[in-house]
Amino acid sequence: MSLVARHLEANGLSTVVIGSARDIVEECGVARFLFTDFPLGNPCGKPWDAAMQRSIAGMGLDLLERAWMPRTTTQAPFHWDDDAWRDNFMRVDESNREALAREGELRRQLQEEMKKER
């Protein structure tokens, strides 16, 4: 998505990226970025919360109007209900390390078989 935003900017169109994966967007580098510190999936506001969504979309419009240089990041002033998702998402620890290794092995076997069938 950041690559598309960069292409549009390079061709004379103003863009704002709204997202929750801050490091991925900022490493790539975009003109304007509104960061929502939520679990991945709802960067434009919580589901069914139209007031929050309106506020976040409005902040995106503010950025379009007011940013004067690239790599301008602002952050939406909202918090998720709890912080458990921060540790849980793609967690790797002793409780699942063996299961993850097995999953990876199985997937590679499946991919090998699919290659042979082609």
Binding site: P39, L40, N42, P43, P47, D49, A50, Q53, A84, W85
Partner: peptide, 18 residues
Amino acid sequence: DKKATHTKDVDSFMPVNR
């Protein structure tokens, strides 16, 4: 994050109505 949330409301990831 399929454990923490859902995407049944399009406006939560693309503000088309907003």
